[in-house]
Amino acid sequence: MNALNIILLVLLFLSGALTVVLVLMHSGKGTGVSDMIASSLYNSAAGSGVWEKNLDRLTVITATVFIACIVVMAISFPTGTLG
């Protein structure tokens, strides 16, 4: 296994786990993990819009990294090179 494959595997697992955690933190209909955490982090009347925007951005970034790792690994996994 080449260094590129090892780096991609670590990045794949980290981005996958982080994506799952961030998706679970999104607010749903009032009974999600986000509401349990939110009650201790901020007042529901102040700052919830900024919190959700940042959570959306982080989720999109981690999902994009996850998909990019899968595509690059599909191309380069046996040899560890892109050529």
Rank of each mutant, 00 (worst) to 15 (best):
I67E: 04
L58A: 12
T81P: 00
N2H: 09
S39H: 11
V71K: 02
D56V: 11
F66H: 04
M1P: 14
G80R: 01
K29V: 08
V33Q: 06
M36K: 10
V50P: 07
A46Q: 14
G16C: 03
M36G: 12
V23Q: 06
L4W: 00
T19V: 04
I37H: 04
S27L: 12
S40D: 14
T31G: 12
S39M: 09
E52D: 13
I6P: 02
G80E: 01
S40V: 13
K53G: 14
L12K: 03
L41P: 03
A38V: 07
G49M: 11
L82M: 11
V72A: 02
G28H: 04
S34P: 08
F77N: 02
L41W: 13
I61T: 04
N2I: 02
L11D: 02
K53D: 13
S34W: 13
L22E: 02
W51R: 14
L14M: 06
S39K: 12
G28F: 00
N2L: 07
T64W: 04
I7A: 12
S34I: 05
I6E: 04
T19I: 04
V50K: 12
L12M: 06
V20C: 06
P78Y: 03
V23L: 12
L11N: 07
I6N: 08
F77D: 03
G47N: 10
G49T: 13
V23H: 05
I37P: 00
V60L: 15
S15A: 07
T62S: 08
W51G: 04
A63D: 03
M36D: 08
I70K: 00
M25C: 10
I75C: 04
H26M: 13
S27P: 12
I67K: 02
G30N: 00
G49D: 15
D35Q: 13
T64L: 09
D56P: 05
L8M: 07
I67Q: 00
M25L: 15
T62D: 02
T81K: 12
E52H: 08
W51K: 08
G32H: 06
T62F: 08
R57L: 15
G16M: 03
A63I: 01
T64F: 07
I37M: 13
V60N: 09
V33H: 07
G16F: 04
I67F: 10
L55I: 08
T19F: 05
S39T: 10
L58F: 14
M25P: 00
V72P: 02
A45G: 10
D56L: 15
E52M: 10
D56E: 14
L4I: 03
L11K: 05
C69A: 08
I61S: 05
M36A: 15
